[in-house]
Computed example of a mutant assay.
Amino acid sequence: MAGYYPLMLDLRGKTCIVVGGGPVAERKIRSLLDADAEDVRVISPTVTKGIAELARSGSIQLRLGEYLEQDIDGARLVFAATGDPDLNRCVAAAAVVRGALTNVADDSAYGDFVTPSVIRRGDLVMAVTTGGASPALASGIGRDFMARYGPDYAGKVERLRELREHVRLRLADPDERRDLLRLAAEEALAGSLDELTGSSDADRMDEWIRRLRAAADRRQT
């Protein structure tokens, strides 16, 4: 079994092709849209109601018809999800020639990558995979993550992003920046992010920094 290198891709401006129109293809399409993919193109003679609705809304481009090799010209990512193993392998072979990364549904050996179970909480993205060995296990672990890291983490991550930017502007010492940001992350994990008061965002961030400095001083005594 091949090992996989985990990474997060920025799909803005990248052409993503999905060949197939069934439920598996629809899941692939929705995962791309969840990742803010802007150029998703789907090729299939028939599609689910969900895919048809996404096409009507303008979220994806849809060509109803049989797959043609030129359909994947210019693609950065290709998903072969037709339900026909032989056709999927043909799609994958054509994608390799074009230098596109390829995922083959239910047959990871013929593709470049597998799609993990993904949990999104705003900018917090957690991905779990077993390398295709047990998608059910990856899904189960993903559900555990969803229960542990609830929807409130979207707001926590946004606040930590704001703090990080503010700290970079306010504090010159890189060690102090690192220590305060680590303390803030610990607060988020412990569920103890307090409400901040102040007349402006800058005031609130300054208050947070003062509180974190006080906590850091207490740790050193």
Rank of each mutant, 00 (worst) to 15 (best):
A52I: 03
P45E: 04
L137P: 00
R76Q: 10
R168A: 14
V118K: 06
D144N: 15
L64Q: 08
T129L: 01
A94C: 02
Y67P: 02
G58F: 11
A95F: 03
L101R: 10
R56G: 02
D73W: 01
V42Q: 07
L169H: 13
I43Q: 01
R182K: 13
P135K: 13
E162L: 11
P45M: 08
Q70P: 00
V118D: 08
V114G: 10
G65C: 01
T46S: 12
G140R: 15
R182A: 13
D112V: 02
R89P: 01
N103Y: 00
V42E: 02
Y67A: 07
R76D: 07
K156Y: 07
A95Q: 04
A81H: 11
F145N: 02
G65L: 00
R170I: 07
R98K: 14
A100P: 04
S44A: 15
D175W: 00
R76Y: 15
P85L: 11
D39S: 12
A105F: 01
H166K: 07
A55E: 09
Y110N: 11
G65S: 03
D73E: 10
R143P: 07
A93P: 06
E38Q: 14
R143W: 09
A136V: 12
L77I: 13
I43G: 07
P116N: 04
R168L: 15
Q61M: 12
G50C: 10
G142I: 05
I43K: 01
V97T: 11
V97I: 12
S59H: 12
D86K: 13
A154V: 00
F113M: 10
E162D: 04
N103G: 06
S139M: 12
K49Q: 14
A37W: 03
R76F: 15
A109P: 04
V104P: 05
G155L: 09
I119W: 00
G83R: 12
D179F: 09
Y67R: 06
G132M: 09
G155W: 03
L77F: 08
L64K: 12
V97D: 13
L101A: 11
G131S: 10
G142P: 00
A105C: 08
S44N: 11
R159T: 06
Y149F: 14
A80G: 12
L183S: 07
R98P: 07
L160M: 02
G150P: 00
T115S: 13
R161W: 00
K49I: 14
P135N: 14
P174H: 09
G140E: 15
E38M: 09
Y149G: 02
G150R: 05
D73R: 02
R159H: 07
L64F: 00
I141P: 04
V40N: 04
R89I: 09
Q70T: 03
L171A: 06
S108E: 14
G50N: 14
I119R: 07
L54N: 09
H166I: 06
A94T: 01
G132Y: 11
D107V: 04
D84I: 04
G131D: 04
D123H: 06
F79Q: 03
E38W: 04
A55H: 02
G140C: 06
A105Q: 06
Y110A: 15
